[in-house]
């Protein structure tokens, strides 16, 4: 048991070290993120300037900005290239090497990705949160909601991984990595509320979106952080739903993966 935990911690450490190696990547992410934020600031400012009332769908300009800024920081924190990686490794045949490791493929990936996520959370999400808090003068509460937020990010990361993993597994059947990836990205971005807050969605669409797993990735943690009106019970049920989706998507992905692995054909000897 002790040995096992040691093994896990080592992998987590490798993930952390790996992420810290790519400092240029981090600077790039930061730069891209700042420009994105400037653009959405102007865009939403113009949008709200044209609205007849200050509050639209229960959200003011400031609420929207807090949501979108944190959503973008969260997006960069949780960003992973599992689908691209799997697609490339399936195409080249290198994926076989991953199967030979003395540890399950999924476990291995989750652990090293968690390491990456921890670094990104400390280097990009945390500073963003501090800046948002200072600028807005307490745009979100500093109490137990932070605990819920942290828990939701952890579950959300795993859920995000399983969705990526499912899509990556499709690459066993087709070599169209670009097409598969772009479809996944578009669907997740739109339906998770990362680009437009879900509160703005028309009612029917909102209902549909709440029955899909995507909103549990970004919207659940953000809501838990920002929305102070939530009762403890509804907070717990939101986490529960997130967990439910993680287990369901996890099981489906795992089964799909097990079936697909049998078909693998690697070129060359």
């Amino acid at each position: 048991m002790k040995k096992k935990i040691w093994k896990y911690l080592t992998l987590l450490r490798v993930g952390i070290l790996e992420e810290m190696q790519f400092r240029l990547g981090a600077v790039t992410k930061l730069f891209g993120n700042i420009i994105y934020l400037i653009i959405i600031y102007f865009l939403w400012k113009a949008i709200f300037a044209g609205a007849p009332t200050e509050v639209v769908n229960g959200m003011t300009f400031e609420d929207t900005m807090i949501y979108l800024v944190l959503a973008s920081a969260l997006f960069y924190t949780m960003e992973m290239y599992v689908t691209w990686d799997m697609g490339r490794r399936i195409k080249s045949g290198d994926i076989v090497v991953d199967f030979l490791r003395p540890m399950g493929y999924i476990k291995f990936q989750v652990l090293s990705l968690s390491g990456n996520t921890i670094v990104s959370a400390v280097t990009s999400l945390l500073p963003t949160m501090i800046i948002v808090y200072l600028i807005t003068g307490g745009g979100f509460a500093l109490s137990c909601n932070l605990l819920f937020f942290t828990a939701a990010i952890m579950i959300g990361t795993v859920l995000n991984y399983f969705i990526n993993f499912f899509v990556g597994t499709i690459c066993f059947y087709t070599e169209s990595i670009w097409g598969i990836n772009i479809m996944k990205e578009v669907i997740v971005l739109l339906l998770s509320g990362a680009s437009i807050p879900l509160a703005f969605f028309p009612e029917t669409l909102q209902k549909v979106v709440y029955y899909l797993p995507f909103q549990a990735i970004y919207n659940t943690p953000l809501k838990l952080l920002i929305d102070n009106s939530l009762s403890l019970q509804s907070r717990m049920s939101m986490l529960g739903l997130q967990l439910f989706w993680t287990v369901v998507v996890g099981c489906i992905s795992y089964a799909f993966f097990k079936i697909s692995v049998r078909r693998i054909t690697v070129n060359g000897g």
């Binding site: 709200f48 169209s176 097409g179 772009i182 028309p202 669409l205």
Partner: peptide, 30 residues
């Protein structure tokens, strides 16, 4: 075929974004 579908889906999502925006707001900067 898959790449083509991906491209079309991307553009549809751009369309949907505008649709959702204009459900809430009448104009963007006039």
């Amino acid at each position: 075929i898959i790449s083509m579908l991906g491209m079309i889906l991307t553009n549809i999502s751009g369309f949907v974004t505008f649709y959702i925006m204009f459900q809430n707001f009448e104009t963007i900067n006039g």
